[in-house]
């Protein structure tokens, strides 16, 4: 009986952990994030995080922080799996995310400044795969 109870508790905990990962960003937050990106309020940084292009509202700031915390968790997992540093996983993600930006969206150039993506190729960090 006692063992069964323990098993149930463990299963519940595992379920809770999975749920907390999946529910990290609410649908509203995701919509807010996509809108902010499209409107040039936020951009993709070289380190794999997002940043605010101009002074953000308190709401946008907390949204950016929430997304970056989740991204860092992904980089930490990747680093463990691949035997690299979390920062390496972040830089790799930064390369991919910057390549994926659409014209009009912002990204961080190698010099560190925000650049608006044009129809041409973005300016990539020297370590990014070509």
């Amino acid at each position: 009986m006692k063992q069964k109870l323990i098993k149930i508790t463990v299963a519940a905990l595992a379920l809770g952990a999975t749920a907390s990962v999946a529910m990290a960003i609410t649908p509203q937050q995701k919509a807010q994030y996509l809108a902010a990106k499209k409107n040039g309020l936020i951009g993709e940084k070289m380190d794999g995080e997002i940043g605010t292009v101009s002074a953000p509202s308190a709401g946008l700031k907390s949204l950016v922080d929430a997304i970056n915390i989740e991204r860092k968790a992904v980089y930490l997992r990747l680093a463990k799996q691949q035997g690299v540093r979390p920062a390496d996983a972040g830089v790799s993600a930064g390369c991919n995310q910057i390549k994926k930006t659409k014209p009009g969206e912002y990204y961080q150039a190698p010099a560190g400044n925000w650049v608006q993506r044009t129809a041409g190729a973005p300016q990539l960090n020297a370590v990014c795969p070509k």
């Binding site: 390496d88 790799s92 390369c95």
Partner: peptide, 20 residues
């Protein structure tokens, strides 16, 4: 960065809500 590119791309796809 070259070596982990594939795994990172997969992770980005799996977590599309935070890599929009």
């Amino acid at each position: 960065i070259y070596r982990i590119d594939g795994a990172v791309k997969d992770a980005i796809e799996e977590n599309s809500d935070i890599f929009g």
